[in-house]
Nucleic acid binder design. Sequence first.
DNA 1: TCTGGGGTCCTTACTCTA
DNA 2: TCTGTAGAGTAAGGACCC
Length: 343
Amino acid sequence: MPVILHIDMDAFFASVEVLRRPELRGKPVVIGGSGDPTKRGVVSTASYEARKFGVHSAMPLRTALKLCPNCIFLPVDYREYSRVSAIIKKIFLEFSPLMEDVGIDEAYLDITNRPEAPETTASFIKKRILGATGLTCSIGLAPNKLLAKIASDMNKPDGLTVVGMDDVARLIWPLAARKLPGIGPKTEEHLKGLGINTIGGVAAKSIEWLQAEFGQSYGHYLYEASRGIHESPIVTSWEPKSISREETYEIDTANWQAIAKTLAWLTSEVVDSLKDESCKAKTVTVKIRFEDFKTLTRAKTLPEESDSLETLRRAAFECLGRIRIEKRVRLVGVRLSSLKRQE
DNA sequence: TCTGGGGTCCTTACTCTA
DNA sequence: TCTGTAGAGTAAGGACCC
């Protein structure tokens, strides 16, 4: 049986800010957007003190300000978080080469081949991270990635939770359906409409029923995942599949010149990233989100891959030309996909 | 009244070609 | 030659993740 850890840093962005500014310790801190809660943006991370006011990730900053006028709002500083993240990832690799990077503040680690007891390895990792960075993390220990992920969330912050296949009915089934990775707000509502509120409620259904309700592929996933069954391997290397940039206006605009200027700028940004990755792209997609949040995309696939700003910008403008701007626009985006790495 | 940005993957529809 | 279809590629939208 494999031994998998899911390691998740506690309130990562907020905790890194507290390290830099110790006077923030114990205070409600909210990281998001430009750091100005009167402007457009959402919460990336709220400290545990801020969460007591009901502030949570993905919430509009303006809502967070209403809930917690005394919260300290700070801008997102990806460079600093990436620097700390690199230190943490290096520590993981001291314990196993089988590390799957899943975002700036979490990773899976396959420690099946460690000589000591798995709980001991997990404790060592927590101590190493705390010693090297001053930060705490929560770890889930399980026979697969899915259960490890659910487990790491069960005793936050600074937790260590072990879940075996024998524990699924007792520990996992009582949890809200939403706690199962892959069940988001839409599926949660769909399930509630069917009278299903917990992971156990999903597990009580037959595979035929789930597939009829949610489709072949997703129904199959729900059937297995709700039983703690998951056989996806640790993926240690990753190639980008698409590169995108988008921008939301502070004030919605119907000015075509302004939209065109934004599109040209975003395209040059995204082509810079493409070149940084030594890639060429074959498909260009333009995204327009209107003031009512209705979102349209138009795509153009080129005869062959390109990294020429001129070529990709022309394709982007061709896509924009296929969108009728009849309402004010709040967001413009450009995505490059069908990428090919240069030799 | 609000609802970011950067990704992945899936479904469905359509078109072209063997 | 005609017709039907399988499959690939493309396009658009949506759900989900951090």
